[in-house]
Design a binder for these strands. Structure first.
Lengths: 312, 312
DNA sequence: TAATTTTATAGTCTAAATTTATAATAATGA
DNA sequence: TCATTATTATAAATTTAGACTATAAAATTA
């Protein structure tokens, strides 16, 4: 049994197709066929059920592939150890970011990061929290930036910052004349929400729920981006909530529409999250340092109350 | 990097000598030399400092060898998975047993176990608790039977039975006329103890200490075996304490010397202990089942108070 | 300094991994 | 249903990697 064979098995399990798996491994398909056969012969079990299309894992196969993931992860950590020894911070690093953090945070730290760590090849993807969790678990992402806490066993969290919710109250709205907003002022029924799948949406719902148990979700106007929420709000379709960093992008003439919460302001916790195996920890540390250094200048709030990003 | 190379590195780290390591790996010394060189070239670090005699690990080398142990352990677990799938319980299994458990417990379960699991090749060694702990940690033992709790991070415990302490009171001893003994009756100064390194000795000391803080260890008669303790006691050199199972071996005419404790009787907890990685768990389960099944017929005590086996 | 122990290197052999080419098989679509 | 396509398996050839024997080099010990 070799590490190479295990990597092949992982690739086949992932793509459910010898040919595609072979491409990803940069070898030919017969190589995979013979190597997997050797592995199966040596262990004297069938790992892949080639009868089914697409290929399926057998019961043992699933367990073996799970364990193969562990072994390959542990093996990759050897390179981590060497990098750490040499003070080398580099290599490919796949980072996921949730949509409501991406447009505001990324421009703030990216330039800075690639200047400081030019050898790191960052591959950044915008993904929902759910997608992020599966991809960190299966090893397709090295880390991600998401709202926390997530209560996920396989994943560790390291807080980057707390981002208060800010109300966006259009002209003629019932809350227009209030200088600061309280959570009890909120009414889910005149709140513009992001569409399903965004954890910021869940955060807002949790916040409103904290004062109103029953939520009638018959009609709500929903949108895919915070930009659109602001426009809809300007059309008089209701108020909305924004993450603080987004308010820095609001056009100056719309600034009068913003209302901060009375302290302790509701806020979301934004963290860098990663697999519990702590692979590539040097790069995760580097990201953490750069981002929390930058954010220190942008967010000064102390007294906040964290709202869970999880749907209830 | 191959699993084989990592195994070679582990062997060299253990024996601090290429030649001996090669023998243990059943290959020639040049094989190790070249494979380790390849590994070092690939990682571009030096793992072994051949300058020192005996060979030493470099700083990175230590970390790499530690991680290699993890990888090799995880790799061996693949075979475990396969065995589990096939219901196969077999292969070599190295079991350590502490001296005060060995002579009484082993004869009780060994025949039974090898009849039930003939494919398991048990290699049993009598070892002190301390030796057991290091050997489980470094992978030289698969499991052991010892007095617990041990409070060791790397090691898991599964209780087999509770074995009460029984007093052995010779003729003309001050406690001779008592039908049941109490802990407060004990005096460390007329107690015959096993020599240093036995955890049963530490158990007895802890028990006596529970009523007497200061222990004057100026003169105590000590011995390497419980058989000898009994003989010394018969010579009028003091009383002693025996683990319950040993009292079943005491000759009939000496039975009148035995005194049980008033309930709750002090007792030691005897467990099967193993590495937290839970390798070969099927065999550990099998041992646990056989032993606790057998012991159920021999020890019926319920109301006991566990005495720590650790030196304080 | 000679003898011994230990590691490294050179050359050779063998087995293993990979490739190309092609066959076999299953799925898809006219 | 039958050709077309996609996919996996097999065969033969090639390359690479692992292991061995023999021996050199270096360090240690007597």
């Amino acid at each position: 049994m070799t590490i190479t064979q295990l990597k092949y098995a992982l690739s086949i399990a992932e793509h459910k197709n010898f040919t595609k798996a072979a491409e990803k491994c940069f070898v030919t398909q017969p190589t995979l066929s013979t190597q997997i056969q050797k592995l199966e012969d040596e262990l004297d079990v069938v790992i892949f059920d080639r009868g089914k299309k697409p290929i399926e894992l057998t019961e043992v196969g699933r367990k073996i592939v799970f364990q193969a993931r562990n072994i390959v992860n542990e093996a990759e950590r050897i390179q981590d150890i060497v990098d750490q020894q040499k003070g080398f911070i580099g290599g490919e690093f796949r980072l996921g970011i949730i949509p409501t953090v991406m447009p505001t945070l990324l421009p703030m730290f990216l330039q800075n990061f690639i200047k400081k760590y030019p050898k790191v090849k960052l591959k950044i993807e915008e993904l929902t929290t759910e997608e992020i969790l599966t991809r960190i678990s299966d090893g397709h992402l090295d880390a991600a930036i998401a709202a926390t806490p997530l209560e996920s066993d396989n994943i560790k969290e390291r807080v980057l910052y707390y981002e208060p919710f800010v109300a966006y109250v259009p002209n003629n709205h019932r809350l227009r004349d209030k200088k600061t907003i309280e959570v009890s002022d909120l009414d889910i029924d005149d709140m513009l929400l992001l569409e399903d799948g965004h954890c910021f949406r869940d955060g807002v719902i949790n916040l409103c729920k904290s004062f109103k148990d029953q939520i009638d979700d018959s009609f709500q106007l929903e949108s895919g981006s915070i930009e659109t929420l602001i426009k809809l709000s300007n059309e008089g379709l209701g108020m909305t909530l924004l993450p603080y960093l987004h308010t820095l992008d609001v056009k100056e003439k719309l600034n009068p529409n913003l209302r901060h919460f009375k302290e302790p302001s509701p806020a979301r916790e934004v963290s860098i999250i990663y697999h519990k195996s702590e692979l590539k920890m040097q790069i995760i540390d580097a990201l953490h340092n750069v981002i929390s250094g930058i954010i220190r200048g942008a967010i000064a709030f102390q007294n906040v109350e964290i709202i869970s990003p999880l749907p209830k």
